[in-house]
Structure formats: C-alpha cells, structure tokens
Amino acid sequence: MAIASVCSTAQTQIDEILEEFKGRTIKNVFYVACGGSSALMYPSKYFVDRESSNVTAEVYNSNEFIYRDPQTLGENSLVILCSHKGKTPETTEAAKFAKKKGALVVSLMYVETAPLADESDYIVNYSWAPPGELDPHPEFMNYAVLYRLTAGLLYIKEGNDKYEKFVNSLESMDAVLRKVKIQYTEKAKAYAQEYKDEPTIYTMASGSNYGIAYSFAICILMEMQWINSHAIHAGEFFHGPFEILDENCPFILLMGLDETRPMEERALKFLQEHGKKLLILDAKDIDLTGFDEEVKKYLVPLVLNFVLRVYAVELAEARNHPLEVRRYMFKVPY
C-alpha cells in the first residue's frame, strides 16, 4: 500500500467500523492475539477498565481464547484481533471461532489481504515501521488504531468525550517521537555497549505500560536477541521476583503517568537501594507537548514503546545480532 494512502484508507476503515458500532449492542470487548500483537492491546484494555461503566474488556492469547471458550462471548461481543501480516494461524482460527459465536470481528494488520482478513467482518490496515525507525504515520500505527476503535466505541455507546481528544492528540505523535529519538539515541548506544554481554535483563512496569514491558521482554530480548528475560508486574515485584535482585542483575523499569504509578515508584525505591544495573525510563522526562492532559497517561505506552525500540536497535548493533535473526521462528515446524 502506498504510504500516501495509508491514512485515508485506515480512517475510512475505522469510520465504517464506528458506524457499525452504532447499530449493535456491545457489552464486552475481547482483545485477541499472540506475542507482540497481544501485548499492544493492554493499553486499550486499561482504558476500558478506567473509563467504561457498561463495557468490559479482556485480553486473550488466540489459542486460549478458543480453548477457554468464554461464556460471555456472543452476539453482544466485539472481538478485536491483530496479526502483523495476517498469517498467524491461531489468530485466524480465533477470528473464525468468534464469528461462529455471533461476535463482531475486527482485525488489524499491516497488509491488505491475508487469511485473517478473510475471517473478519472488518479490517484496518495500520501504518508500520521497523523497530527504532520513525513511522511515517504514527497517528495510525497499531496502538493508535486500537485506541481510535476503543475510544470510539465508548464515545458512541456512553458519550465518552476522550475520543476526540485522542484523535487530536495523535496528530502530535510524530513530533513527540522525533524528539524522543533525539533524546534517547545516544543514551541507548551507551546502554548497549555496557549491557551487550548480559545473559539476562528483566523488564518491569504496571498498568497501561505492562504490555510494553512484556513485549520488550518476549519479542525483543528473548525472540530477537536471545537474552533471557521476564516481564515483571511492578505490583508483583515484592511477591517473589525481588529476591532475584542484586548488584549484578539488570532491570529496566518503565514509569508511566497513569493511576498505577505508585507501584512503579515503590519498585524504583527498592531497585535503587539494592541494585545497580538499572535503566529507568520515566514518562515525566519526556516532552509530550501536543497531548491532551486527559489522555496523556493513556498515550505514554506508545511513546515508551518507541523508546524501547530505539534501545533495541542499538543493543542489536552492539551485540552484532540483527533483530531479524531467528533460531526457530519460521524455520522449523512448530
């Protein structure tokens, strides 16, 4: 798809879906995907949890969605799925499963045609750029499309006024990310040189940012760099994981602006008292000019995700381990 047409195509697709919302009763939203595509759905679930009094939201791994067979899934359900190239078999099967249950099925993907598209009622083609590179249209990247759909749903069903604030704020995403790349590139280079030989790096966050930490741990560190990792919820840190901390144990802590920040601040205090190898990425240190105050906390995950991608690129360079290298994925039967 030509770059110039990405925005208009995605907006038209989103408008059609929002129009469909008007004629349907929707009581619950199921966000369904695998891996990084699943992780990017956590911020939207957080938004629904915080903002809606009538609609509930859950995030499911595609296969477990089918095996667990939620009894609340039905004709009053919205199922939003995501697969980068629309070829993830489990996600395609989950779409087919949801349609059989009578749910409205919406799928996000980077490509125009794919098996997942064939099993969906609607699709949205989002904008995409490789890790660490500036997306030509970040206002329509996958995270942003999810927010447009989710906030749009609550606007239509409950009159939530944050939809327009999201739309307006997303227009500033390009400027924010450009400043972020300048702010963090040299820091990422230095970090990569210092930590390139570490066998293990833990990530931690909470609330709307937890999915970002999870994605970095499983998709970047484990999948793309073969570094042992685990995403730790800041609220769970003191219920087991903190015993692994010592002066030689690297931690990355994401600190957001949402209501769960006190948990991250508590974790930060302990990390600084008992650890040394720390990378603290705090949204308070980032210029978020252009973001509406009421939705800023929800947009932080999109920004921190980009920051981590900048670090990923430099880490891969320092380790001479390209992000594209795989041992098993797409190479052996699984």
Rank of each mutant, 00 (worst) to 15 (best):
I286F: 06
D285L: 11
L278A: 12
A57K: 05
A205T: 07
A144H: 01
W128N: 08
G152Q: 03
L18W: 02
E16C: 10
I280K: 03
Y334C: 13
E317Y: 09
D282Q: 08
V105A: 12
C82Y: 00
H239N: 10
E223R: 02
A103Q: 06
S53D: 08
E51H: 10
L245E: 03
F237E: 00
I14Y: 07
R24L: 12
I218L: 04
M222P: 00
G35T: 10
E223T: 09
T185K: 15
E259Q: 12
Q11A: 13
V105Y: 05
D246F: 04
G152F: 07
F97D: 07
K331H: 14
G23F: 00
K96H: 11
Y126G: 05
I26L: 13
Y122I: 11
N63D: 10
L308R: 04
P138R: 05
E158H: 09
R148W: 11
T12C: 14
P43S: 14
I232T: 09
N248C: 04
Y143Q: 13
F330G: 03
D258N: 07
Q71I: 14
D174Y: 15
E16A: 15
V180D: 06
L308D: 03
K296Y: 09
L134W: 01
H233I: 12
Y214S: 10
A4K: 06
V325S: 05
M173C: 03
V167K: 03
S77Y: 06
K277V: 13
E20L: 00
L116Q: 08
E133L: 14
P138E: 02
E20W: 00
I252V: 14
E20R: 01
A151P: 11
G74S: 04
E51L: 05
I80V: 14
S77M: 08
T72V: 06
L302T: 05
N228Q: 14
P131W: 04
D15E: 13
I26F: 00
S52V: 07
D292R: 14
N61D: 15
A57R: 04
G102W: 07
I182A: 15
A144W: 01
I244H: 04
E324I: 15
N28R: 11
C7W: 00
E158C: 11
R309N: 11
L271T: 01
K331Q: 13
V310A: 08
G290V: 06
L304P: 04
D246M: 03
L281G: 10
M41E: 06
K165D: 12
I220T: 14
N248V: 05
T150H: 02
E119Q: 15
Y147V: 06
V29M: 09
A33M: 10
Y143C: 10
L18T: 04
G132N: 02
C249Y: 00
V145Y: 02
T72H: 07
M109Y: 01
F216S: 03
L81Y: 00
L278D: 05
E186A: 09
A129N: 07
G102A: 11
N248K: 09
R148V: 04
F242P: 00
N54C: 09
A4M: 02
Y298N: 10
V295W: 06
Y163M: 14
Y126E: 01
L279H: 03
V176K: 01
F291Y: 15
V332Y: 12
H239I: 13
H239K: 06
